[in-house]
Design a protein around this nucleic acid. Structure first.
Lengths: 117, 117
DNA sequence: CTTGCATACCTCGAACTGATTGGTATATAT
DNA sequence: ATATATACCAATCAGTTCGAGGTATGCAAG
């Protein structure tokens, strides 16, 4: 019997989740997102541009984000904002992320109270 | 300037964490671990034999686990138990896992209180 | 004035996990 | 006799993220 495939790539999609969440709070441009991730996670997580930009492009292609171009101080920025579809996606990702970490947390925290009874 | 590489493969090592934790509670054999993961996570996470066995072998090779062979009902089982080194590894993994998920949780939960000030 | 650094965008291949598939073998139930 | 559950294992596939590259502008320091 093959494996019952309940969780294809169960730990992925975290960069996507973080990007969507940050853009749900306010419009940002790519380079700004890179730094926001670092700051907001207290330097715990650093996602480089090589991670953020592809995520941004992918989400836009799926219709989860809109972009608009703007030049500031001679530098061209691309501002991204979240769409209704993006909000739905964020909601889904947040749900599965929560379920997953709680399941793991249960195991990791378990065995302390030792329900040996 | 290259990316500051603070988190190489930041979301990995969860299978290893789960296996170590379960074996810290009690000695188990491979096939048993596969089912224990499913049960203990409320069917949320299913790690197939193709994931568990390599993890087991790797951990043993690193000295995090000991194994002993035993035949039960004509079937050969390999029981794994955690070593002192394994306990240290578990402690490390648990720590970084906790730090990581808390950092993400902060972002995901944030933006509600809107510290716009 | 040119060297360097921060900003700002981007792509592509390497590396690493974890997923899937397939294989062996025994016991038990149908 | 066949199928199912137990029990082990290896090897390749697939998907993500990482890292290193590349372009270009503005500003500050020497």
């Amino acid at each position: 019997m093959p494996n019952p495939r309940t969780n294809p790539n169960f730990m992925n999609g975290v960069p996507e989740l973080l990007v969507l969440k940050l853009l749900a709070e306010r419009e940002m441009y790519g380079y700004e997102v890179v730094q926001a991730v670092r700051r907001r996670t207290g330097e715990t997580i650093t996602l480089g541009e090589g991670v953020i930009y592809p995520v941004l492009h992918g989400l836009e292609r799926e219709g989860a984000l809109n972009s608009r171009r703007q030049t500031v101080n001679g530098r061209s920025r691309i501002y991204y904002s979240i769409t209704a579809a993006g909000m739905r996606r964020l909601s889904d990702l947040t749900g599965s992320w929560t379920r997953l970490t709680m399941a793991i947390q249960d195991v990791v925290a378990g065995g302390k109270y030792v329900p040996t009874v």
